[in-house]
Structures are given as structure tokens and as C-alpha cells.
Amino acid sequence: KYFGTAKARYDFCARDRSELSLKEGDIIKILNKKGQQGWWRGEIYGRVGWFPANYVEEDYS
């Protein structure tokens, strides 16, 4: 189950295995919004990890 999707506004390079690298334009499935302050958990291309919420724009459609 996921909470919708978000589109990456910027590139983000994961610093460890718990984080999710993003490329601008990627569409991420949002799995959890209750991580550390400002971090969401998501899935993209079969990978799961945490990413900074301010790097994405949530899709409300």
C-alpha cells in the first residue's frame, strides 16, 4: 500500500543503503511520510528507501 506519488524536482544522491537516489523527473511511490523530520520513504524502479521530502512535488491528482 502506498500514499500516492511524487515527482522528483531535483537529483538526490543516496549517502547510504537506507536512502533512495532520485533523478529530476522520477516518479516515486510514497510508502511512508513519518520518517525523520522532512524525510519520506518511497519506492522507485524496485528500490525502497528514504528521501528528502523537499526534493519532490507531491502529485494530488
Results as ranks from 00 to 15, higher is better:
61 S>C: 15
51 F>S: 01
45 Y>D: 15
34 K>E: 15
44 I>C: 14
47 R>D: 08
43 E>N: 07
43 E>R: 08
24 E>S: 13
15 R>A: 06
8 A>F: 02
18 S>C: 07
58 E>L: 09
22 L>A: 05
21 S>E: 13
24 E>H: 11
45 Y>T: 13
9 R>K: 15
39 W>G: 00
45 Y>F: 15
52 P>L: 01
49 G>T: 05
50 W>H: 03
23 K>C: 09
13 C>A: 13
23 K>L: 04
52 P>I: 08
56 V>S: 01
49 G>R: 00
35 G>D: 11
58 E>M: 09
45 Y>H: 15
38 G>V: 05
58 E>K: 02
38 G>N: 08
34 K>S: 13
48 V>T: 15
13 C>E: 15
51 F>T: 02
41 R>C: 14
18 S>R: 11
58 E>V: 11
41 R>L: 14
27 I>C: 10
18 S>P: 02
7 K>H: 09
24 E>C: 12
21 S>N: 07
19 E>K: 01
17 R>C: 15
29 K>W: 06
8 A>Y: 03
30 I>V: 14
40 W>P: 01
4 G>F: 07
20 L>C: 00
7 K>L: 10
45 Y>W: 12
34 K>T: 11
4 G>E: 08
34 K>Q: 14
61 S>G: 10
30 I>L: 08
29 K>D: 09
11 D>Y: 06
12 F>H: 13
27 I>F: 06
49 G>K: 01
39 W>E: 02
38 G>S: 05
45 Y>N: 15
27 I>Y: 08
3 F>D: 08
54 N>I: 07
17 R>P: 14
51 F>V: 03
38 G>D: 08
50 W>G: 03
6 A>C: 12
52 P>E: 00
22 L>P: 00
26 D>A: 05
20 L>Y: 04
22 L>Q: 00
19 E>R: 00
50 W>A: 04
50 W>F: 03
16 D>G: 12
40 W>K: 07
25 G>A: 03
60 Y>V: 15
56 V>C: 06
26 D>S: 05
38 G>R: 05
23 K>W: 02
46 G>I: 02
19 E>I: 03
34 K>R: 14
29 K>R: 14
36 Q>R: 14
32 N>C: 14
10 Y>P: 01
4 G>C: 08
5 T>R: 10
3 F>A: 07
22 L>V: 07
54 N>G: 13
39 W>P: 02
19 E>G: 03
5 T>V: 11
53 A>T: 09
38 G>A: 04
3 F>C: 12
1 K>G: 09
7 K>S: 07
2 Y>N: 15
30 I>P: 02
16 D>P: 01
44 I>R: 11
56 V>N: 02
24 E>R: 15
7 K>A: 06
48 V>Y: 10
4 G>H: 08
4 G>L: 09
49 G>L: 00
23 K>Y: 09
11 D>T: 08
46 G>E: 08
32 N>Q: 14
48 V>H: 06
45 Y>V: 12
19 E>W: 06
47 R>Q: 13
54 N>R: 15
46 G>S: 07
16 D>K: 10
41 R>S: 07
24 E>G: 09
39 W>C: 08
12 F>L: 02
59 D>T: 14
42 G>M: 03
37 Q>E: 14
31 L>S: 04
23 K>H: 11
12 F>Q: 05
36 Q>G: 10
17 R>N: 15
4 G>S: 12
25 G>T: 00
25 G>S: 02
46 G>N: 11
27 I>M: 10
61 S>T: 13
13 C>K: 10
10 Y>L: 11
2 Y>F: 15
22 L>M: 11
44 I>W: 05
3 F>G: 08
55 Y>D: 03
